[in-house]
């Protein structure tokens, strides 16, 4: 991304520099705390953004880094959401253990389906992910005894976080909790991206044909990253359940799978912050547009998508980094 002018830079230092925290990142995370003071009445929305951002981050790992297009990623979000809900109902209401359960179940299902996913690419893969997503949604719909079907899961009740912070009506706890979880998972994702495995994922994205020729087993890599992405999506789903204390069938919907792809493309796929920026822009735009025209807000989302994709092929972040490079050169 950045041009390195010094020729004295050793290769190791160069790679280290690529993975170093940039000031803008610290600014970004500091800014996530602003809603507590600037928009105290919008904390519920902020919490939704953090959760959706986490979901988009999980998709970024497979779509942005390994080039696996999925139209059924909500499956893992939904599994996490239902697991966290059922966990609170039948085990106990402690939130962190609920998240661990959500992550575990989503991860197991992700690992199982990764054996199918890793064998296909392109259109076939899109159709398979789409199909698996629909399959799961209808299974949840018909399992009324367990999930409540289209009525939603009733009786979810979550204990205060750390036994101290009760989930309140204003979303104060919800945002603080979601943001904290988002940050911790983001640190893990950042670590993964900057690891040898992260480099292998970029290799798959850049040229899947070359990978076997350098001795790489792409399918094993894909199975692994798909499982990791499922775990993170499951955590995001679990967060939604815990912060809203309800689970609707919508968590497994095709719209949710499609929306998250749109967010990632808006923000910039293959960049760690693409999902977070995309989710923020999308959720705020949706909030504003639905205020203006409650029935037609998807029209504006459509317009936004077309404009961003035509003008900024690498999303908002891609466009920004191009601007910065141009500005530095001149």
């Amino acid at each position: 991304m950045t041009q390195i002018s010094t020729t004295s830079l050793t290769p190791q230092l160069y790679l280290q520099r690529q993975t170093r925290w940039r000031p803008i990142e610290i600014v970004f995370w500091a800014a996530t705390l602003l809603p507590f003071w600037l928009f105290p009445t919008y904390l519920s929305l902020a919490s939704q953004i953090a959760i959706t951002g986490l979901f988009a981050l999980s998709l970024d790992l497979i779509l942005g880094y390994a080039g696996i297009v999925s139209l059924g990623h909500a499956a893992f979000f939904g599994i996490g959401a239902y697991t966290a809900g059922l966990f609170s109902k039948f085990v106990w209401g402690e939130p962190f253990s609920g998240l661990v359960a959500a992550a575990a179940v989503a991860g197991i299902v992700g690992y199982a389906s990764s054996f199918i996913i890793s064998r296909f690419r392109h259109l076939t893969l899109i159709m398979i992910t789409l199909g698996l997503g629909l399959l799961l949604k209808e299974a949840a719909n018909s399992a009324h005894w367990l999930t409540g079907g289209s009525d939603g899961l009733q009786g979810v009740s979550i204990d205060p976080v750390l036994g101290l912070f009760k989930f309140d009506l204003y979303g104060r706890t919800a945002y603080g909790y979601s943001l904290a979880v988002l940050f911790v998972v983001f640190l893990c994702a950042r670590r993964i991206i900057n690891s040898p495995f992260g480099l292998a994922l970029r290799g798959i994205r850049e040229n899947v044909v070359r990978m076997p020729a350098i001795g790489a087993d792409s399918r094993a890599h894909i199975r692994k990253v798909y499982t990791i992405a499922a775990i993170i999506a499951g955590i995001a789903g679990g967060l939604l359940t815990q912060t809203t204390q309800t689970v609707a069938l919508e968590v497994l919907s095709f719209e949710r799978s499609a929306d998250v792809v749109v967010m990632l493309v808006l923000g910039g796929a293959g960049r760690l912050y693409g999902g977070l920026i995309g989710a923020t822009v999308y959720m705020i735009a949706r909030d504003q547009f639905s205020g203006i025209a409650p029935q037609y807000w998807y029209f504006w989302i459509g317009a936004l998508l077309v404009i961003v994709v035509t003008l900024l092929p690498n999303g908002i972040l891609g466009g920004l980094s191009r601007l910065i490079r141009r500005w530095r050169r001149s």
Partner: peptide, 19 residues
């Protein structure tokens, strides 16, 4: 570096910084 990591069998390490 990726090719070298693959040969050394360390390309699946997701917890370690590449540097």
């Amino acid at each position: 570096t990726l090719a070298v990591c693959e040969r050394r069998g360390i390309a699946d390490r997701f917890w370690q910084n590449i540097a």
